[in-house]
Structure formats: structure tokens, C-alpha cells
Design a protein around this nucleic acid. Structure first.
Lengths: 249, 249
DNA sequence: TAGTGGTCTAGACCACCTG
DNA sequence: AGGTGGTCTAGACCACTAC
């Protein structure tokens, strides 16, 4: 896995990481301006565009904000309890967001079949392309966490029960499939009987549902999943940055 | 192209709008590649960077995806029912997302007071700076929609009951305050008695809660609000685009 | 008025995909 | 091997802020 391989990292990412470190270690103080983009460009021996690209990521993460004509400032972090918040713009898998905790899965259902019309539309496939149909309960440190119902075209990659014990994303990554885009729909609803039983909660109890269509680096939809999260157990956070003019519908 | 009127719009935004129009009118077909960035740059008499900036917005909206070494493709829109979905990365106000529908507000509570510690932290203010405390029920086409509990430092702008009948954002915009950044926390929970009564739902019924800290163009937190949405009535959509390497931690 | 970030240019090279 | 998008440069000018 880690053979101290050559890092093909991009310059703007290194700059981003470095400035982020300096913010998190309070080298750059909250409320205070960063050095000017011109200065940073000289410091990092690069161009201003690369600096801007790095700062843009920090903006999107909510760590800084930029005022035209003034400077870029470190945001006073209103809440430091982000530890318990799951970023909505990162992969949603539990294994990803809880790397340092004990994740287990209970496989409730695993089979292959042909897709119905909704699934054909969601996965952009024909009716004769078989899909895996997977239901898993995820547990974090032994506590019930979420119920995931996943469908995936079988031609993406062969699955088996052993793989499903761990992280599907890790497995897919190991065979060269990366989640690069996703479309997520969120809403609250009442747990139906199946969800309630699986998560050991009362039927009708609130759950947060996230429906996700995941696309790989080639633009193919490789997964459609519906995840239900127990009320109040999971909170998601999202930083919004408004681009420019008002979008006229 | 007409050079008659001086438009303060930016070039990349015009390109973005134009390409978007061509996608939505099926001039560029789903699954098919757009012209190359080089070609688009010539077409629009601009540089490739400007084209890339326009395409980036389209990517973030989920309309296209780009494959390095191959091209930029129009995404097959899996679902066209986006009409009923509220974009999570746009201003959350009902008045914004339902411009063409009839919005009304019931003002439940309106007063000013000193902030408690949580509010001081959320709004980044001192304990002696008074805030408005506002509770409103929003209705769309006469149907109960959401309960908003908003706190805002009084020094931002004077409010009165008349303003609160309409859109706070429109009012703030008219005096030069724009929402440019926001931090949102989402979760599902049970409606407490107050929420249930206000929305005419049963106590304990699921609601989707969005807590928002809103920042203006000067980086000041000008609003902290907690909005509760009735189960299944409101669905939010978010397109995620993963930047680059895995973010460690 | 000076200084900042935002936009934009006209290139160059690199990483990657497809024939 | 040719063509594509991604990165990066070294500038210029504009929009805005602050003094």
C-alpha cells in the first residue's frame, strides 16, 4: 500500500494543505488577514492563480473568506464541535467519515436481479443489465448507525459477502473506481417497519434519508443508494459559497 | 453579440448562462460531448480559462462532467423532477426557492433581547449587542411549509413587522447586504410541541432541521436561523464534486 | 490614492484518454 | 500518436476597500 511512492500531488493542493495547517495551528489567527495573494505567490514561488485556487478550497471549507479590495481573512470558527458533524460534500460512507472508529456491518440482504424502471433511470442502464441489491446495517462502535440500501450494476465489479463486510468504496477504489461526482437528495421521514427493525428504533420514528447517485471518474453512475440515519444521531454540515449574480431561475 | 449596453456581468457568467441554455434546450445533447474548450474559447472570443470557469459552474450544478483526456459531456439527467427539489447550495429562504408561488408568512414572535452564550458564538458578537428574535411560519400556496426561528444582531439593519411579512433577504439586499457564505447543519428530529403547533402537525412527527449561519460579503455573520421542514414535504438536493486527493482527516 | 482581490489573456507543459 | 482537459505562468486590467 504505502511504498513511499512518488507523489503526483498538485502544487495548488500543497499550498492549500500548507495554509490550512497554518490556520489550524493558529499561525494565521482568526479574524486576521492572510498575507496578500501576491505575497503568498512569492512565498510559495508560484503564480497568483495557483494561490487563488488554494484559497478557493479553503473558502469552500469555510475556513477563510475573501473581501475584494481588502484581503482574505481567517473565519472565526463559530463552532469547534465539527468533530461530530459529517461533511455533506465528502463521500457519505461511514467507513470514510469514521476512519478512527470501529465500523461493523450487518449484511441483511444480498442478491442480484434485473432493475425496475426507477433503478434504470437512476443508474442510466438498460432493463437487461443486472444489478446487485444490497441492504446493510452499519454500526459505529457497536451502536446502530444507519441502514443502507444500495443498488449497483453487476458489471461495475464483482461483489461478495466478504467485501460487503467492509467498505465498498475502499474495494472499488482498489480496482480503480473513484467517486468523483454525486447527486444527493435529503429529506426527513418516518421509519417504516423494515427500517425501524433494522435500526432498533420505533416504527414511525424520524430518520434522515439521503438518496445518492454516485458517478465515477468516467461519468458513469455506478451506485444508487438510500441511507437512513437515526434521528439526532447524525448531523451533516455543508459550507455554501455563493458564486456571483442571482441565478434567474 | 451586441455592444450596445454596458453590462456589469462577468464574461464567464455569460458563457455559463449561454452554454446552460444550449444544454437545457437540447442543443447540446445528453451523453454527447460539448465542443472542446479550445473551440469554445474561439467561439466566445475568449480564453480557455474563462471557458473552464464557466464549465466548472455547470459541473457543480451537475449538468456536465469533464473527463481529462476525453472531453466534457452533458450528463444524462437521471431525474427531471428537480422542480420539486430545493438546491441546498442556494439561499434557503422560501421566497427565493419558490419565486413563482404564493408565499405568505405568519409572524409568531418578534422582539429584541440580549444574546445567550450560544448565540454570541454563532453570531460572533459580544454579550451586550442586542439581537432580534423572530419566529415565523412560512406558507407556500396556503400550505404550511416551515417554521423559522431567526436571530440577527440589531445593528445589521432595523426590522419591523411589515418587513417580516415578506423576504428578509430581499430587504437586506435592498440595503446592500448579500448572503455570500453560509454554514448549514442538517438533521432529522421529532417536532416539539411548539413546532408541531405552528406547523399543524403531530407532536413527535419527523421534521428536517436546517441550522444556518449566514455571512455577508464583508464576512460578518448576520443571521443565525433554525428552520424546521415538515416530513416529506421538502426535499433538498446537492451536487457534490470531489476535488482531488483524499482529504486526510 | 494606494492596495487588495477578481477577472481575463495568451500562451506552455503535463496527465490522461482514445484511435 | 494525436487530442483532450488539468495545471501553471507572468503578466494586464478592473472592482472594490480602506485610509
Amino acid at each position: 500500500m504505502n511504498l513511499t511512492e512518488v507523489k503526483p500531488l498538485y502544487l495548488y493542493w500543497e499550498v492549500y494543505s500548507d495554509i490550512k495547517k497554518d490556520i489550524l495551528t493558529n499561525h494565521y489567527r482568526a479574524g486576521k488577514p492572510l498575507p496578500t495573494q501576491e505575497t503568498l505567490a512569492k512565498t510559495y514561488q508560484t503564480s497568483r492563480l495557483t494561490i487563488k485556487k488554494a484559497l478557493r478550497i479553503l473558502q469552500d471549507e469555510g475556513l477563510i473568506y475573501s473581501k475584494q479590495g481588502s484581503g482574505s481573512y481567517v473565519r472565526a470558527r463559530a463552532t469547534d464541535d465539527d468533530k461530530e458533524l459529517l461533511p455533506l460534500d465528502a463521500p457519505i460512507g461511514v467507513t470514510y467519515s469514521h476512519r478512527d472508529q470501529k465500523i461493523t456491518s450487518k449484511l441483511l440482504y444480498f442478491d442480484a436481479r434485473l432493475p425496475n424502471e426507477t433503478e434504470q433511470k437512476n443508474l442510466v442502464i438498460k432493463g437487461n443489465e443486472p444489478i446487485y441489491d444490497i441492504k446493510r446495517v452499519r454500526l459505529v462502535n457497536g451502536h446502530y448507525y444507519s441502514l443502507e440500501h444500495t443498488t449497483m450494476p453487476t458489471h461495475i465489479a464483482p461483489l461478495d459477502r466478504k467485501i460487503l463486510k467492509g467498505s465498498i468504496y475502499d474495494y472499488l477504489g482498489s480496482i480503480g473506481i473513484q467517486l468523483t461526482d454525486a447527486r444527493r437528495v435529503l429529506y426527513a421521514t418516518e421509519a417504516d417497519k423494515e427500517t425501524a427493525d433494522a435500526l432498533h428504533i420505533k416504527q414511525g420514528s424520524p430518520v434522515l434519508v439521503i438518496e445518492q447517485t454516485a458517478y465515477d471518474q468516467k461519468g458513469h453512475a455506478f451506485e444508487y443508494s438510500v441511507s437512513s440515519f437515526i434521528r439526532d444521531h447524525s448531523r451533516f454540515v455543508l459550507n455554501v459559497h455563493r458564486r456571483s449574480p442571482d441565478m434567474p431561475h
